[in-house]
Write a protein that binds this DNA or RNA. Sequence first.
DNA 1: CTTTGTGCAAATTCTTTGCACCAAA
DNA 2: TTTGGTGCAAAGAATTTGCACAAAG
Lengths: 138, 138
Amino acid sequence: MNSKKNISELLLKNGIRPSVQRIAVLSYLHSHYTHPTVDVIYSDLSPEMPTLSRTTIYNTLKLFSESGIVKCITIDEHHQHFDGNINPHAHFICHNCGTIEDIFYDSTEKFNFPQNPNLHIERSEIFYYGLCKKCYNI
Amino acid sequence: MNSKKNISELLLKNGIRPSVQRIAVLSYLHSHYTHPTVDVIYSDLSPEMPTLSRTTIYNTLKLFSESGIVKCITIDEHHQHFDGNINPHAHFICHNCGTIEDIFYDSTEKFNFPQNPNLHIERSEIFYYGLCKKCYNI
DNA sequence: CTTTGTGCAAATTCTTTGCACCAAA
DNA sequence: TTTGGTGCAAAGAATTTGCACAAAG
């Protein structure tokens, strides 16, 4: 289980002081693999924490993504989405309903392109676009 | 060669009226495979066309990407980049100098993921991040 | 003459910054 | 008591919108 205690320990292990706000944000991401934006996180958490500010969420997510415990994914130009799942995976985006689905695949991909030698590739970001099951069947 | 005349005909073929501004923007993208932003295009074109406005470039690129003759790529949350090359290819982004390089690969990729059935994938967007040759050798 | 395109200025929206207050070590 | 965290209000920056004028068919 991802108890507050476990989250707290995870933060400490990454050199981050576990404040109430930070625990709340990371717990949220670990229980909502929906790739939320700052605003979604804010809207969902603020009823329970009325003094929470967007600034804190921005600060927190910046800190988290710098230490690698969450991933920031840029899908469209207007919003950053955050992902508490840091295993390598691709994302599927439904262009009708906007849902973002995780796609796990044999990560035997090789970062080697004969036509582009001498690139030092460190990571990849793969997006698939189309219609999800639900939207396709409408 | 991509003369103004050819550009003009390409636009007509796609049901777009070839105005001076539209021809200029598409010519620019066809001769600069550098994935420019609106602002870069604006800065480069405005000396020759002092009355050109950013709004027109936004309008034009929106029109172009809707009809598929250019591609809009969202790499970071702050800028949209535009690509006059509409052949399928991936992009490499150097996190030091920001250069965007095209990567052509055997496009035998299959849009089929056993763990995610019933997705109707139409296109993909693949980004690789790392250091380019120049920045790696510094 | 009617429709479409252009471009200025203002508005919008997501994100960042400055700064004062608060909390923890 | 010193360092780090929070959160408000204001600033910033990319993009969009409203609207009037210009151009094209």
